[in-house]
Write a protein that binds this DNA or RNA. Structure first.
Lengths: 354, 354
DNA sequence: ACTTGGCACTCTGCCTGTCTGAGTGCTAAC
DNA sequence: GTTAGCACTCAGACAGGCAGAGTGCCAAGT
């Protein structure tokens, strides 16, 4: 379980020097993908230590499960646990320079409606990180109803239009038992607007149940049909979650995903969506950046991958999650702030237009 | 250029026996992917011919460009031209048995709104053929306007709702110079419904230009603003074409696409969409099944692939194209009827609900 | 004139052995 | 606790050998 900044990862058992060496090893491995040997490390670690000494330390690190050798004589690579320690305790996050932020900002400003925005933020993430970018569509459950409107379609079908958050428009078609005149429908929508405009969908759904019972006694026919219709609108409103994924092809450049079977499983998971959505759901309650490394995600298809996510919000309410997927060996110190900033940008973009 | 059933592919230069051998060779290569040698062919061709004789014929076929050897001693594989002849003149299309058709039918019947339908037809194609399925979204230019409605959103913005073909609902937001009351908007939509409901969007767009001039003289203010608004609705209505692709991962099982770089280019073309859409556009005027083999498509990313497409229609008007993408070595005799039938099914599904 | 068997040739795939470079573990000395 | 030295191991690259599959061509058969 990714539990940030807790010492549960046993980093405490490592002395200063071992931590430093682990850090350099991970950085080195991230940057060139090769197993790191004692000589290289001795050269690059900045301390005056011979390869032999390094070897002793490495042996300890291996015993503790932070690194491992792919084979007898091949240097060490970090294990998932090694990455975990690195990410939680060792890594120094790079600040983005203002130029990069500006670039992100510009791309966000350029788009208008929400789906377009989500699309381009996803493309943005994938472009900047050279990994796969991922943005969950905003859950409209927590969005505010601005306006509701009914239009007659045919004898037994009515088109319902929901305007959410000023920009977002949703359509639904409901089946009704008897014919309604345009005037009937007009009245119904007036009633509902009066009562529900300005609240979020979740509230509305809850309130509806209460109101339906309350009015049953007052015997107001108009009111009752209006509420019944509203009931239909919101009843089968199971959050159909979805996400936009961009830049899958970036993942095809990584040696660790060169195995076609592995890659197929991964791509299948992407189009299957279910597993990925579950994973994203688990990130939605985290206050900030959340990271799953390798098998930590619990999904076989993501074994060789890491996911870095951050939730985005409107008026303090979490609407969704965005992030990137890449090989475990990714440049966390760059990716983490990018995901973080992007989530903030998307949040403020959504805020400013709601 | 794919020009079906013309003898331009020089099949005429081949005698009966050579044609038969080419046919068997292509079939054999399609089914197991290996280069076909003279001995195998002599065994499988059904004629009583020694391998030596076969070799002579194969040499001729190679001279004419229908087959080639990957290297000195490796049997022959069909060239693009060989496939072309095979597809145009040699192949016997398998009839689908009623069970398969029923299966397709059921899947189509199960879905409701258009996007869902397109989605599931694409999944269907990919599932049945084990290739990538492709369905272009219906062009709404040729769809019928059933109803138009305006709703005030804010002082200077109006939400426009277009109901097309009974089931399809589109939203658009337009900016207006001055505020309109709900009543104003109601009147405007009434006017426009009277005039335009029942026509297709392309007609409407044309008519609008004329009407705008005609009413300028009659000085009917209401009329003029209504038409002006309608103008705004339809002006920036550039057909944004799109398609739904399913089952890309199927393509990863084919040996001829095992080269990661090649595969990346292909997948990039899929998410880029532009090239694929151009290609589909070229298929839209064909009356029936259209096939591009290998480089015939003209796009480098599709070099190793073939595309089989068929247009689908509503009331005789072509709304879009669907098809499959797979390696050049695909089971044409099965794929062609599947694509053909699926297009018909989609057409009739769209017809029955419009 | 077409068909066939035979033969030499070629190429791939596979296995083997060898060698080198990189890296480790261990031990003994500092 | 640190270091140098040494024996050991392993992957990767390279060359040689061998079997299998297939071709092209030629000469003989029908």
């Amino acid at each position: 379980m990714p539990d940030q900044r807790t010492p549960s990862n046993m980093v405490g058992t490592l002395n200063e020097r071992a931590q430093h060496l682990l850090k350099v090893l991970v950085e080195r491995h991230i940057s060139d993908g090769q197993p790191v040997g004692s000589r290289t490390l001795s050269r690059d670690c900045g301390l005056e230590l011979s390869p032999a000494t390094i070897r002793n330390v490495m042996a300890d690190l291996e015993d503790l499960g932070f690194v491992r050798s792919p084979h007898t004589s091949a240097g060490r690579v970090p294990t998932v646990r090694g990455y975990r320690v690195f990410v939680d305790s060792l890594l120094q996050i790079k600040k983005l320079n203002s130029l990069e932020i500006e670039q992100l900002q510009r791309a966000v400003d350029a788009t208008q409606n929400t789906t377009e925005l989500v699309q381009s933020v996803s493309t943005l993430l994938s472009g900047v990180t050279r990994l796969a970018g991922l943005v969950m569509l905003p859950r409209h459950n927590t969005q505010m109803l601005r306006h509701i409107e009914f239009l007659p379609l045919s004898r037994d079908r009515v088109l319902v239009i929901l305007v959410l958050n000023e920009h977002e428009v949703h359509n639904r078609i409901i089946d009704v038992e008897r014919e309604f005149s345009a005037a009937d429908l007009q009245q119904a929508s007036n009633l509902l607007n009066e009562r529900f405009a300005g609240r979020d969908l979740l509230q509305i759904r809850n309130d509806l149940l209460n109101e339906l019972q309350a009015t049953r006694e007052s015997m107001n026919v108009l009111m009752e049909t209006a509420l019944a219709m509203a009931g239909k609108v919101f009843e089968n409103d199971e959050e159909t979650e979805d996400y936009v994924l961009q830049g899958q092809t970036n993942l095809m450049n990584f040696a660790e995903l060169a195995d076609m079977e592995k890659l197929r499983q991964l791509f299948e998971a992407f189009s299957e969506k279910r597993e990925i959505l579950h994973l994203l759901d688990r990130c939605i309650d985290a206050r900030g950046v959340q990271i799953f490394i390798g098998e930590e995600s619990g999904y076989q298809a993501l074994d060789e991958c890491s996911i870095v996510t951050a939730p985005y919000t409107v008026e303090g309410r979490v609407l969704g999650v965005l992030g990137v997927i890449g090989p475990t060996r990714m440049a966390y110190e760059r990716v983490i702030p990018i995901v973080d900033v992007t989530a903030r940008l998307l949040s403020s973009a959504l805020n400013s237009r709601s």
